[in-house]
Write a protein that binds this DNA or RNA. Structure first.
Length: 659
DNA sequence: CCAGGGCTCATTTTT
DNA sequence: TGAGCCCTGG
């Protein structure tokens, strides 16, 4: 058996695991709010103070996190201890420590395994995050290289950077559970190219762009560590302690890579996580890696069953979902006893959008399965919502491949820049802040005419005041169609305009897109204000559950609407909300053999992650047809009552609300 | 019976 | 944009 529950030691977030004394590998099971990061940080500090191994020059504790944000958080909390710790994502670690220091071996392996020769001067670098592949490389340079290597001139001319960028080593075949490295990794190949052409295209990426994709860093990192004893030896010497946070999120090749050097008598390998919070299956992560974690010298297993975040009622409701977890079937309320409101289960059968039935204050977060459901909670008029959604979808799927948040952030199009400018200006005006007004106008009108003293300064200042007054003509119900005119007229009359007028493309214009620009004209000021300040902002409190992972909020509303193709009422759907709530299975025995069961259990875990973000108030929102409601309520209630009976809970920790 | 035009609806996310 | 669905004309 993978988990020996009887011999799993109960600890709490303040426990000293005495790693410096026993020098044993370990695994920690800890649910939401258990104080995982606290346990990790405190034990690292104790280890630094007491470990003799770390006294040797240059030796550090390796601490692997899933995201850059998590790494930053740990670095911050380590404070002065950070100098003894190498905190990093697995990608940065493999690039900075393994690939960069073994360029000759990397070149040799690429040549050996794929027959692609790379010149000595090449230094392969990781692809830049947030940018498309080959973003820093000119297309002409790539084309030039391809032609020089004998590729057909006309074929090269029609070759986009996107197409070239697709030629990467596909690790999917390797990155499966259980990990099996006898599978051969190949370069992604569009059938229009011959084997030789693919080799040339790949060479152009390596020689000209000198770029490695994210998965390629994993693949070559794994390969080098596996092929070279000296690399394994040096990693073990440099990092006598290897700790991995959020272990349930790391995928098979990452774990296999760590195992190559961390599963060793000279290394203490510690992993920490929660089986039930594994929600990155679509990234090849599986909780099975954590469940079946085993070091050669048999690690010590620990668990924390306390929850320092949520109230007792919330913990009981959440524990109902993880009742089948073998390690922590129920958490214990360890701290939050200030209030203890019942969890609300809202059964919504009305036709109105959910935003109209909730009072949402700034302590409330709305967390949903899909971005579409998140959107239904926004306080935007239904017709306006429809227009905005059409615009967002066109950006995302209509050949732009652009996320709305990014589009706004980058000021991707004129109309988005206009929206940003207007909202900033009006907000600044409401606050009566001249500094903010001037800051909003920067880049649009010539600010220096007002800020620098001159004979005309007064004249321009007066013009600015007129502009601000004219902006008052724009009220919540003004549409973008009118805003375009009002703004342009006002800006021109300042005599300070330093750019072209804001123009929303019309039919016949080069960049006109019916689905985008016709709908843009319909948007009102109220909508664009909400769009910029509430919906598509980085500190938005309405988001998908995936984005909320690791966060916590005073009040939480969780929506559980599946994607349309998951919904059982749709063709080929497989997610039945009632069936899942009635008997939640967070860990399916058939996780790797039955994709449907695996999808259902991952969906259940996602809902669990959402629910467990709540500190004081939790609402589960379920949208139902009127004819489903009674059965739904009765059957879910019975299941919860049965759970109470089995667990000797007398006072209900939940209540139903019908709307 | 089937080819193809028109229409609708788009997973979640890290590096 | 592009897959999948419905509908219609040949």
């Amino acid at each position: 058996m993978a988990i020996d529950i009887v011999n799993t030691l109960l600890v709490d977030s303040a426990s000293d695991l005495k790693i410096y004394e026993n020098e044993r590998s370990f695994r920690v099971f800890a649910g939401p709010g258990a104080g995982k990061t606290y346990l990790l940080i405190e034990n690292i500090k104790t280890l630094v103070k007491n470990s003799l191994k770390l006294k040797k020059n240059g030796r550090k504790i390796l601490c692997i996190t899933y995201t850059n944000a998590a790494a930053d958080e740990i670095i911050k909390r380590l404070g002065v201890y950070n100098q003894y710790v190498y905190v990093s994502t697995i990608h940065s670690f493999l690039y900075d420590v393994v690939l960069k220091n073994n360029r000759v071996q990397l070149r040799h392996q690429i040549q050996n395994k794929y027959g692609i020769e790379i010149s000595d001067s090449v230094s392969l670098k990781p692809r830049i995050e947030g940018m498309s592949p080959l973003a820093t490389c000119k297309k002409e340079k790539l084309h030039e290289y391809l032609v020089s290597k004998g590729m057909d001139q006309t074929k090269v001319e029609g070759l986009s950077k996107t197409k070239i960028g697709q030629c990467i080593w596909k690790i999917d075949i390797l990155n499966t559970y259980p990990f099996n490295d006898s599978n051969i990794v190949t370069i992604h190949q569009d059938p229009v190219f011959s084997d030789d052409e693919i080799k040339i295209i790949k060479s152009s990426i390596l020689e000209v762009a000198q770029e490695l994709d994210f998965d390629e860093i994993l693949f070559w990192g794994y390969t080098l560590i596996k092929e070279y004893k000296h690399i394994r030896y040096s990693l073990r010497y440099k990092f006598p302690y290897v700790f991995v946070d959020e272990y349930q999120d790391t995928n098979p090749i990452q774990n296999a890579t760590l195992r190559l050097f961390a599963d060793d008598k000279n290394v203490v390998w510690g992993v920490i996580g929660d089986l039930v919070q594994s929600i990155y299956g679509f990234n090849n992560a599986t909780y099975k890696e954590f469940e079946n974690f085993q070091t050669t010298d048999a690690q010590i297993d620990y668990k924390i069953d306390g929850n320092r975040r949520s109230t007792d009622n919330i913990i009981k409701f959440c524990s109902y979902f993880r009742q089948k977890d073998p390690v922590i079937p129920n958490q214990i309320c360890a701290k939050n006893t200030s209030v203890n409101n019942k969890v609300k289960i809202v059964l919504h059968t009305g036709l109105e959008e959910p935003n109209s039935i909730f009072v949402i204050d700034n302590e409330t977060a709305i967390l949903c399965r899909s971005a579409a459901e998140v959107f239904s909670f926004t306080n935007i008029d239904t017709e306006q919502k429809r227009a905005l959604k059409k615009i967002a979808n066109t950006y995302e799927f209509g050949g732009y491949g652009l996320d709305m948040l990014n589009a706004i952030d980058q000021g991707r199009e004129e109309w988005l820049r206009l929206c940003k400018f207007l909202v900033q200006l009006k907000v600044a005006k409401e606050k009566n802040s001249l500094a903010e007004i001037i800051s909003a106008c920067r880049g649009i009108i010539d600010i220096e005419k007002i800020t620098k003293s001159s004979k005309e300064q007064g004249y321009y200042y007066k013009n600015l005041i007129i502009l601000i007054k004219k902006i008052d003509e724009i009220i919540d119900s003004t549409t973008m169609e009118d805003i375009e005119n009002i703004i342009n007229e006002s800006l021109k009359s300042t005599n300070m305009l330093i750019r072209d007028c804001f123009l929303i493309p019309k039919e016949g214009d080069e960049y006109y897109n019916k689905d985008i620009h016709d709908n843009v004209r319909l948007l009102t000021y109220e909508t664009i204000k909400k769009m910029i300040l509430e919906v598509y902002s980085f500190d938005s409190k309405i988001m998908t559950i995936h984005k909320a992972k690791g966060l916590e909020f005073k009040k939480v509303i969780v929506g559980i609407e599946p994607f349309s193709k998951e919904d059982i009422s749709k063709k080929n759907g497989y997610i039945d909300k009632l069936a899942i709530l009635k008997s939640p299975i967070v860990l399916s025995q058939e996780e790797d053999t039955n994709p449907q069961k695996s999808n259902i259990s991952e969906y259940t875990r996602i809902i669990y992650v959402g629910l467990s973000r709540a500190i004081n108030d939790l609402t589960l929102y379920v949208r139902l047809n009127l004819n489903q409601k009674d059965a739904f309520r009765t059957e879910f209630d019975n299941a919860l009552k049965e759970y109470m009976r089995v667990n000797y809970i007398n006072e209900p920790f939940y209540e139903f609300v019908e709307i």
